[in-house]
Design a protein around this nucleic acid. Structure first.
Lengths: 151, 151
DNA sequence: CTATAATGGTTGGCATTGCAACTATTCTTA
DNA sequence: TAAGAATAGTTGCAATGCCAACCATTATAG
């Protein structure tokens, strides 16, 4: 096993860098679509996505599910509450916790955004064959798991 | 070709989301290493990486190579100049442009950071076989190219 | 040539982020 | 059951990012 270690680092060939640029590109593209049509930030949309799947989640659960700082969730949530896309109700079992739900309007928007999101994913992945797609998925997952364990 | 379109979106299965979380995880991990040892931000390090490979680049070239807003480059550059990791000299051919170079100290740090960066890349990728690694590389590139063309 | 456009780079303002401190409530345990 | 730890959520502050406006210089076109 030859351990070649160049003394120069070329960003374009450096995986973490490429991952970052790719991810930003993709996020920006999709974020723009949400923003233009529904005035939703990525965080706001992610919150709605969690609530669409798990109504009654707490902010903390959303924070963990979206891997997002709880302060960021808190502020994004305030915007969603102000726009009445989400309601909150204090959990009677544990009065620290709030149970959050999409309102009727929130659900309407949710139902509109979901197919748009899938469209983007589809358009993004249509450069892959089915095989490549499955492969990519698997590799991303593997890396995803692994990256957690490094520290 | 069955076009199944679920009416619910699960973030953990949504590729743009997973890409984003993975990328953040990786970036944060590496950023922390630069920051702790050399007090360099990601942007600052990227600038140095470009200058290590292409001494005499202009801020604009760096901006394009790193895919980073020029205002961000400008401010990060100011920090590097203040710390004397980089020098600038006005291009005599075109007096709008500045030719930027790593100083001796800048080169020292550069030479220390490069192997650390490769270590992280290595550690990240050691969950892959050689085959998977090459494959992942290819797929990322393909997607990278493709994502550009969508808009 | 001169007026206008384009380019390289900086700056100001505003929103977003990340961290830590803080409040309120619940859990633990002695 | 009282004291301290843990947890849910909010807020303040400093740092960062993003956009647009701006200055200086160079290129272009009439």
């Amino acid at each position: 096993m030859s351990t070649k270690r160049p003394s120069v680092l070329t960003l374009e060939k450096y995986l973490p860098y490429r991952l970052s640029v790719l991810s930003n590109r993709v996020s920006d593209m999709i974020a723009k679509a949400y923003k233009d049509k529904f005035a939703l930030s990525v965080t706001e949309w992610r919150i709605m996505a969690v609530l669409g799947e798990y109504p009654g989640s707490s902010a903390d659960e959303i924070s963990r599910k979206t891997q997002t700082e709880k302060s960021i969730i808190s502020r994004a949530m305030q915007r969603l509450l102000k726009r009445r896309l989400v309601t909150r109700q204090i959990d009677s079992e544990d009065r620290r916790r709030q149970r959050l739900r999409l309102t009727k309007t929130g659900q309407d928007i949710y139902r509109q955004v979901v197919p748009i999101s899938y469209d983007y994913e589809e358009r993004l992945l249509d450069c892959f064959t089915e095989r490549e797609r499955a492969n990519f998925d698997k590799l991303i997952d593997k890396l995803y798991q692994h990256a957690d364990k490094i520290d």
